[in-house]
Design a protein around this nucleic acid. Sequence first.
DNA 1: CCTAATCCTTCCCACAATGGGAAGGTCAAT
DNA 2: ATTGACCTTCCCATTGTGGGAAGGATTAGG
Lengths: 139, 139
Amino acid sequence: MNISAAAERSGVSAKMIRYYESVHLLPAASRRSNGYRDYGDSDVAILQFIRRTRDLGFSLPEMSALLTLWRDRKRPSREVKRLAAAHIADLERRIREMQSVVRTLRALSQHCRGDDRSECPILDDLAAAPTQRARQKHQ
Amino acid sequence: MNISAAAERSGVSAKMIRYYESVHLLPAASRRSNGYRDYGDSDVAILQFIRRTRDLGFSLPEMSALLTLWRDRKRPSREVKRLAAAHIADLERRIREMQSVVRTLRALSQHCRGDDRSECPILDDLAAAPTQRARQKHQ
DNA sequence: CCTAATCCTTCCCACAATGGGAAGGTCAAT
DNA sequence: ATTGACCTTCCCATTGTGGGAAGGATTAGG
């Protein structure tokens, strides 16, 4: 089948299929006599696998590792679980960072009236010198 | 003062100061006779403001908007609060998305032994056809 | 059989924000 | 005068994705 049919069935855009091939996440697709890439059901299955790992936020190198493990019937499940755990830990770290920022922003917003007046503790805090900020933290 | 002194005092790298100038987040710095950029205390204050907005995850356009509001003594605090609220909402949306992914990954990992055996529900699920996945969801 | 639309190919550009590094000029201390 | 530490601009890389151009192939309608 053509690349656009494979794209539609897998949920991975034609653009990205070519890109994944160019960075060797995928082996070079077989070509028809006219130079068009040709895909079979097993290729679509691989693309669907890739799509799901991508939807779960795995990076390209992680996707590559998962693909290799998937293809290796003899892989120890430990390695797969380790990859997943590392990714979970990374996500949780980023979540904590963002939550911390949200807390800070909420604290700043809380004291801003948000009306026509120009008085704004949010801007005041953003403009405060670091030492002042440190002082405020411990008030 | 030189750019590297301004960088050190503000916590914004010289590289980024030049970049912010090139994209007009900052006005062009004044130059000394030798062509070197020259910064004063008020410039450092602006850079520190930028640094704090950046640390809070604001995008460059948002930083630009906040800077404009900061400079405008007559701004209504409503606009500042609205910007902050929008950013909070955006962060929370992203946090929810990541939390959802974490839940999914935890669920998959839970049933993977993570030992020498090759049996691995994580890979099985990643490889499952979408209909199968939908079915599993409702089991 | 011709034409138009829709494919396909490769190649370049763009994004956001940051860093690395080269080539070349300047300054300060020895 | 030399050396080292600055400064300048310019180019390249990152990550993953899309846009679009130029040119060739195929297909559908007339």
